[in-house]
Simulated assay, not measured.
Amino acid sequence: MAVKLGANRYGKAETRLVHVVRDGPVHHLKDVNVSMSLSGDMEAVHLTGDNAAVLPTDTQKNTVYAFARKHGVGQIEAFAQRLARHFVASQPAVRHARVEIEEYAWRRQGPHSFVRDGTEVRTCLVHHDEDGRTTVVSGLKDLVVLNTTGSEFHGYAVDEYTTLPPTTDRVLATAVTARWRHDGDTPSYATSYGQVRQALLDAFAHTHSRSLQQTLYAMGERAITTCEGICEVRLALPNKHHFAVDLSPFGLDNDNEVFHAADRPYGLIEGSVLRADAPDAGFAWE
Protein backbone atom coordinates (compact mmCIF):
# COMPACT_ATOMS: atom_id res chain seq x y z
CA MET A 1 0.00 0.00 0.00
CA ALA A 2 1.42 3.39 -1.02
CA VAL A 3 1.49 6.17 1.56
CA LYS A 4 2.71 9.76 1.60
CA LEU A 5 3.37 12.51 4.10
CA GLY A 6 0.42 14.80 4.70
CA ALA A 7 0.08 18.23 6.26
CA ASN A 8 2.46 18.78 9.15
CA ARG A 9 3.84 21.45 11.43
CA TYR A 10 5.92 21.64 14.58
CA GLY A 11 6.72 24.24 17.21
CA LYS A 12 6.94 25.26 20.85
CA ALA A 13 3.72 25.26 22.82
CA GLU A 14 2.89 27.42 25.83
CA THR A 15 6.00 29.47 26.42
CA ARG A 16 5.16 31.46 29.55
CA LEU A 17 6.47 35.00 29.54
CA VAL A 18 6.10 37.73 32.14
CA HIS A 19 7.55 41.05 31.01
CA VAL A 20 8.05 43.99 33.40
CA VAL A 21 8.64 47.47 32.01
CA ARG A 22 10.28 49.59 34.73
CA ASP A 23 9.23 53.17 34.05
CA GLY A 24 10.94 54.68 37.08
CA PRO A 25 8.90 53.85 40.19
CA VAL A 26 5.88 52.84 38.05
CA HIS A 27 6.05 49.36 36.56
CA HIS A 28 3.98 47.88 33.73
CA LEU A 29 3.22 44.16 33.52
CA LYS A 30 2.54 41.82 30.60
CA ASP A 31 1.71 38.17 31.35
CA VAL A 32 1.36 35.99 28.25
CA ASN A 33 1.44 32.41 27.02
CA VAL A 34 2.94 32.00 23.53
CA SER A 35 2.51 28.99 21.24
CA MET A 36 4.00 28.82 17.77
CA SER A 37 4.32 26.32 14.97
CA LEU A 38 6.25 26.30 11.71
CA SER A 39 5.65 24.48 8.45
CA GLY A 40 7.31 24.28 5.05
CA ASP A 41 9.94 22.03 3.49
CA MET A 42 9.95 19.43 6.24
CA GLU A 43 9.71 16.20 4.24
CA ALA A 44 13.27 15.04 4.94
CA VAL A 45 12.99 15.16 8.73
CA HIS A 46 9.88 12.98 8.62
CA LEU A 47 11.06 10.53 5.98
CA THR A 48 14.78 10.16 6.74
CA GLY A 49 15.36 11.93 10.07
CA ASP A 50 17.46 14.68 8.42
CA ASN A 51 17.15 17.67 10.79
CA ALA A 52 18.84 20.24 8.55
CA ALA A 53 15.58 22.19 8.00
CA VAL A 54 14.44 22.03 11.63
CA LEU A 55 14.85 25.07 13.83
CA PRO A 56 14.80 23.59 17.35
CA THR A 57 11.71 24.34 19.39
CA ASP A 58 14.05 25.45 22.18
CA THR A 59 15.33 28.16 19.82
CA GLN A 60 11.75 29.24 19.18
CA LYS A 61 11.22 29.58 22.95
CA ASN A 62 14.42 31.62 23.30
CA THR A 63 13.26 33.91 20.48
CA VAL A 64 10.15 34.80 22.46
CA TYR A 65 12.25 35.92 25.42
CA ALA A 66 14.80 37.76 23.27
CA PHE A 67 12.11 39.63 21.33
CA ALA A 68 10.44 40.66 24.59
CA ARG A 69 13.74 42.18 25.74
CA LYS A 70 14.62 43.80 22.42
CA HIS A 71 11.19 45.04 21.29
CA GLY A 72 8.91 44.73 24.31
CA VAL A 73 5.58 42.92 24.09
CA GLY A 74 3.00 45.67 23.61
CA GLN A 75 -0.23 44.52 21.99
CA ILE A 76 -0.20 40.75 21.65
CA GLU A 77 -1.32 40.90 18.00
CA ALA A 78 1.72 43.01 17.11
CA PHE A 79 4.08 40.78 19.12
CA ALA A 80 2.71 37.68 17.37
CA GLN A 81 3.23 39.27 13.96
CA ARG A 82 6.85 40.16 14.77
CA LEU A 83 7.56 36.57 15.77
CA ALA A 84 5.78 35.02 12.78
CA ARG A 85 7.51 37.28 10.26
CA HIS A 86 10.89 36.62 11.87
CA PHE A 87 10.64 32.85 11.54
CA VAL A 88 9.51 32.97 7.90
CA ALA A 89 12.16 35.53 6.92
CA SER A 90 15.07 33.92 8.78
CA GLN A 91 14.56 30.24 7.96
CA PRO A 92 14.73 29.20 4.27
CA ALA A 93 12.75 26.00 4.89
CA VAL A 94 9.91 27.73 6.75
CA ARG A 95 7.04 28.75 4.48
CA HIS A 96 4.42 29.49 7.10
CA ALA A 97 4.37 30.49 10.75
CA ARG A 98 1.47 30.32 13.18
CA VAL A 99 1.64 32.19 16.50
CA GLU A 100 -1.08 32.06 19.15
CA ILE A 101 -0.95 34.13 22.33
CA GLU A 102 -3.06 34.27 25.48
CA GLU A 103 -2.80 37.30 27.76
CA TYR A 104 -3.76 37.26 31.44
CA ALA A 105 -4.97 40.55 32.86
CA TRP A 106 -3.61 42.14 36.03
CA ARG A 107 -5.18 45.17 37.70
CA ARG A 108 -2.90 47.80 39.17
CA GLN A 109 -2.97 48.23 42.95
CA GLY A 110 0.01 50.55 43.25
CA PRO A 111 3.12 51.68 41.34
CA HIS A 112 4.50 48.13 41.32
CA SER A 113 1.66 46.08 42.81
CA PHE A 114 -0.94 44.11 40.85
CA VAL A 115 -3.85 41.70 41.42
CA ARG A 116 -4.98 39.10 38.90
CA ASP A 117 -8.10 40.44 37.18
CA GLY A 118 -10.66 37.62 37.07
CA THR A 119 -10.77 34.65 34.74
CA GLU A 120 -11.10 36.41 31.40
CA VAL A 121 -8.26 35.77 28.95
CA ARG A 122 -7.40 37.87 25.90
CA THR A 123 -6.27 35.88 22.84
CA CYS A 124 -4.86 36.29 19.37
CA LEU A 125 -3.93 34.03 16.48
CA VAL A 126 -1.58 35.20 13.71
CA HIS A 127 -0.64 33.44 10.49
CA HIS A 128 2.12 34.65 8.16
CA ASP A 129 3.44 32.96 5.03
CA GLU A 130 6.27 33.36 2.55
CA ASP A 131 4.05 35.35 0.15
CA GLY A 132 3.70 38.09 2.74
CA ARG A 133 0.11 37.29 3.65
CA THR A 134 -0.74 37.95 7.28
CA THR A 135 -4.05 37.26 8.98
CA VAL A 136 -4.91 38.40 12.50
CA VAL A 137 -7.68 36.96 14.66
CA SER A 138 -8.20 38.59 18.05
CA GLY A 139 -10.38 37.21 20.80
CA LEU A 140 -11.23 36.45 24.38
CA LYS A 141 -12.32 33.46 26.41
CA ASP A 142 -13.85 32.75 29.81
CA LEU A 143 -15.79 36.03 29.87
CA VAL A 144 -18.53 34.98 32.30
CA VAL A 145 -21.86 36.82 31.96
CA LEU A 146 -25.33 36.28 33.41
CA ASN A 147 -28.83 37.73 33.02
CA THR A 148 -31.22 36.99 35.90
CA THR A 149 -34.27 37.47 33.63
CA GLY A 150 -35.10 38.47 30.08
CA SER A 151 -34.60 34.96 28.72
CA GLU A 152 -37.14 32.42 27.49
CA PHE A 153 -37.05 28.96 25.96
CA HIS A 154 -40.20 27.38 24.56
CA GLY A 155 -41.76 26.24 21.30
CA TYR A 156 -38.91 23.80 20.64
CA ALA A 157 -39.10 20.40 18.98
CA VAL A 158 -40.18 17.53 21.25
CA ASP A 159 -40.11 13.75 21.02
CA GLU A 160 -40.65 10.79 23.35
CA TYR A 161 -37.48 11.59 25.28
CA THR A 162 -38.20 15.27 25.95
CA THR A 163 -38.63 16.14 29.62
CA LEU A 164 -37.50 19.79 29.69
CA PRO A 165 -40.41 22.08 30.60
CA PRO A 166 -40.84 25.27 28.58
CA THR A 167 -40.14 28.55 30.33
CA THR A 168 -40.80 32.23 29.74
CA ASP A 169 -38.43 33.41 32.48
CA ARG A 170 -35.05 31.84 33.14
CA VAL A 171 -31.50 32.69 34.15
CA LEU A 172 -29.22 32.93 31.11
CA ALA A 173 -25.52 32.49 31.84
CA THR A 174 -22.50 31.65 29.71
CA ALA A 175 -18.72 31.86 29.54
CA VAL A 176 -18.07 33.62 26.23
CA THR A 177 -15.36 32.50 23.86
CA ALA A 178 -15.21 34.98 20.99
CA ARG A 179 -12.78 35.42 18.13
CA TRP A 180 -12.91 38.14 15.51
CA ARG A 181 -11.08 38.51 12.23
CA HIS A 182 -9.53 41.79 11.19
CA ASP A 183 -9.98 42.99 7.62
CA GLY A 184 -6.56 44.49 6.88
CA ASP A 185 -4.48 46.58 9.25
CA THR A 186 -5.99 47.69 12.55
CA PRO A 187 -4.48 50.95 13.87
CA SER A 188 -4.94 50.02 17.53
CA TYR A 189 -5.58 46.47 18.63
CA ALA A 190 -6.18 47.65 22.19
CA THR A 191 -8.92 50.06 21.04
CA SER A 192 -10.46 47.40 18.79
CA TYR A 193 -10.42 44.86 21.60
CA GLY A 194 -12.21 47.21 23.96
CA GLN A 195 -14.82 48.08 21.33
CA VAL A 196 -15.61 44.48 20.41
CA ARG A 197 -15.69 43.35 24.03
CA GLN A 198 -18.13 46.15 24.92
CA ALA A 199 -20.31 45.37 21.88
CA LEU A 200 -20.57 41.74 22.97
CA LEU A 201 -21.48 42.74 26.53
CA ASP A 202 -24.04 45.33 25.40
CA ALA A 203 -25.77 42.85 23.09
CA PHE A 204 -25.89 40.18 25.78
CA ALA A 205 -27.31 42.60 28.36
CA HIS A 206 -29.92 44.23 26.13
CA THR A 207 -31.20 41.34 24.00
CA HIS A 208 -34.45 39.78 25.20
CA SER A 209 -33.47 36.21 24.47
CA ARG A 210 -35.79 33.52 23.19
CA SER A 211 -32.82 31.22 22.64
CA LEU A 212 -29.09 31.34 23.20
CA GLN A 213 -28.70 31.10 19.42
CA GLN A 214 -30.60 34.39 19.07
CA THR A 215 -28.32 35.97 21.65
CA LEU A 216 -25.23 34.67 19.83
CA TYR A 217 -26.35 36.28 16.58
CA ALA A 218 -27.17 39.56 18.33
CA MET A 219 -23.71 39.65 19.91
CA GLY A 220 -21.93 38.97 16.62
CA GLU A 221 -24.12 41.42 14.71
CA ARG A 222 -23.44 44.19 17.25
CA ALA A 223 -19.68 43.66 16.96
CA ILE A 224 -19.69 43.61 13.15
CA THR A 225 -21.88 46.69 12.74
CA THR A 226 -20.28 48.90 15.40
CA CYS A 227 -16.58 48.00 15.28
CA GLU A 228 -14.60 49.19 12.26
CA GLY A 229 -12.24 46.72 10.62
CA ILE A 230 -13.95 43.56 11.92
CA CYS A 231 -15.30 41.30 9.18
CA GLU A 232 -16.20 38.08 11.05
CA VAL A 233 -16.94 37.03 14.61
CA ARG A 234 -17.03 33.42 15.82
CA LEU A 235 -18.64 32.63 19.15
CA ALA A 236 -18.88 29.60 21.41
CA LEU A 237 -21.41 29.96 24.22
CA PRO A 238 -21.83 27.14 26.73
CA ASN A 239 -25.24 27.34 28.38
CA LYS A 240 -24.46 27.52 32.10
CA HIS A 241 -27.74 26.05 33.31
CA HIS A 242 -29.39 27.41 36.47
CA PHE A 243 -32.26 25.25 37.70
CA ALA A 244 -34.83 26.57 40.14
CA VAL A 245 -34.74 24.43 43.30
CA ASP A 246 -37.96 22.73 44.35
CA LEU A 247 -38.52 24.01 47.89
CA SER A 248 -42.04 22.63 48.25
CA PRO A 249 -40.90 19.74 50.53
CA PHE A 250 -40.03 22.44 53.06
CA GLY A 251 -43.30 24.32 52.69
CA LEU A 252 -41.60 27.11 50.75
CA ASP A 253 -42.33 28.61 47.35
CA ASN A 254 -39.58 29.60 44.91
CA ASP A 255 -40.42 32.46 42.57
CA ASN A 256 -37.19 32.19 40.55
CA GLU A 257 -35.05 33.20 43.50
CA VAL A 258 -33.11 30.09 44.52
CA PHE A 259 -31.17 28.15 41.88
CA HIS A 260 -28.81 25.23 41.52
CA ALA A 261 -25.92 26.16 39.21
CA ALA A 262 -25.08 23.01 37.25
CA ASP A 263 -21.63 22.70 35.68
CA ARG A 264 -22.32 19.73 33.37
CA PRO A 265 -23.68 18.53 31.09
CA TYR A 266 -24.33 21.81 29.30
CA GLY A 267 -25.62 22.98 25.96
CA LEU A 268 -22.94 24.39 23.68
CA ILE A 269 -24.03 26.95 21.10
CA GLU A 270 -21.53 27.87 18.37
CA GLY A 271 -21.78 30.07 15.33
CA SER A 272 -20.28 32.84 13.24
CA VAL A 273 -21.53 36.20 12.04
CA LEU A 274 -19.79 37.89 9.16
CA ARG A 275 -20.03 40.92 6.95
CA ALA A 276 -21.76 40.09 3.68
CA ASP A 277 -18.67 41.14 1.69
CA ALA A 278 -16.13 39.56 4.05
CA PRO A 279 -12.98 38.30 2.30
CA ASP A 280 -12.21 34.60 2.33
CA ALA A 281 -10.96 33.43 5.73
CA GLY A 282 -8.42 31.01 4.25
CA PHE A 283 -6.34 29.49 7.02
CA ALA A 284 -7.08 32.29 9.52
CA TRP A 285 -8.89 30.22 12.15
CA GLU A 286 -6.80 27.05 12.13
Rank of each mutant, 00 (worst) to 15 (best):
D277R: 02
F250E: 11
N254M: 08
L5M: 01
P279V: 00
S37Q: 02
L216H: 06
D31I: 09
N33G: 08
D202R: 02
H208L: 12
G118M: 07
H242T: 04
D50I: 00
T15M: 00
G40Y: 01
T191L: 08
R210M: 15
E152Q: 15
R9T: 05
P166M: 09
S192Y: 08
L252P: 07
N8R: 04
S39K: 03
V171M: 14
G74F: 05
L235P: 02
Y193G: 04
F204T: 00
S272K: 00
V115D: 10
K4Q: 14
V26L: 11
A44C: 04
W106F: 12
V137I: 14
V171D: 12
L143C: 13
P166T: 03
V3M: 14
S113K: 03
T163W: 10
D31C: 09
L83A: 06
P165L: 11
V73M: 10
D41M: 08
A199P: 02
A178R: 07
N256M: 12
A66H: 11
V115K: 03
R85N: 14
T119C: 12
H128G: 11
G150Q: 07
G150N: 10
A203T: 13
L274A: 10
L17Q: 09
Q109S: 11
D253N: 12
T186V: 07
R69I: 13
L125A: 08
R9V: 05
R69S: 15
Y104I: 08
G24R: 04
Q91K: 09
T168F: 14
L252C: 14
A278D: 04
D202S: 06
V21N: 03
S192K: 05
V54P: 02
V45P: 00
L252T: 06
E270C: 12
L17D: 01
V32D: 00
L274Y: 02
G271R: 01
Q198H: 08
D31A: 06
P25E: 15
Y161C: 14
V273N: 02
V137G: 09
P166V: 01
R85K: 15
G139R: 06
G282D: 05
V18G: 08
K141D: 13
S138F: 10
